[in-house]
């Protein structure tokens, strides 16, 4: 299972890096959001316990912590997701503004229009 997670992270980073190096703004934004997904998965992987239960108490008996997945990375991931959501929203607004002003979202084209 951890292999599956690692391969997913690798694929996401590859796709994200490829998209981030494109010329169109919208592709760059998508690329960076893929990159942030990859890092989020990586944090999940850092708290990995094979075959752990999800960290929700079913009863009020004292649980054995070794059998549960560490909940702290998941809390961190939630925070990271919210932050990357905010940044993506900001970038989309910037891309939209650029598109409205220049009728294109191609970086090279914009630079040419700027002269």
């Amino acid at each position: 299972m951890i292999w599956f997670l690692s391969i997913t992270i690798g694929v996401l980073v590859t796709a994200g890096a490829y998209l981030a190096m494109q010329r169109r703004l919208i592709q760059m934004v998508l690329g960076f959001s893929l990159l942030s997904h990859a890092t989020n998965l990586m944090i999940v992987a850092s708290g990995w316990v094979g075959d752990g239960f999800s960290p929700i108490l079913r009863s009020y008996k004292a649980p054995d912590p070794a059998t549960y997945v560490d909940p702290l990375p998941q809390a961190m991931v939630l925070t990271a997701i919210v932050i990357s959501f905010a940044v993506t929203a900001f970038l989309l607004v910037i891309a939209l503004m650029a598109y409205r002003s220049f009728e294109t979202d191609d970086i090279d084209e914009m630079r040419r229009l700027k002269g």
Partner: peptide, 8 residues
């Protein structure tokens, strides 16, 4: 974040 996950 990658650094934090390495550390963690």
């Amino acid at each position: 974040l990658v650094g934090i996950s390495f550390l963690y």
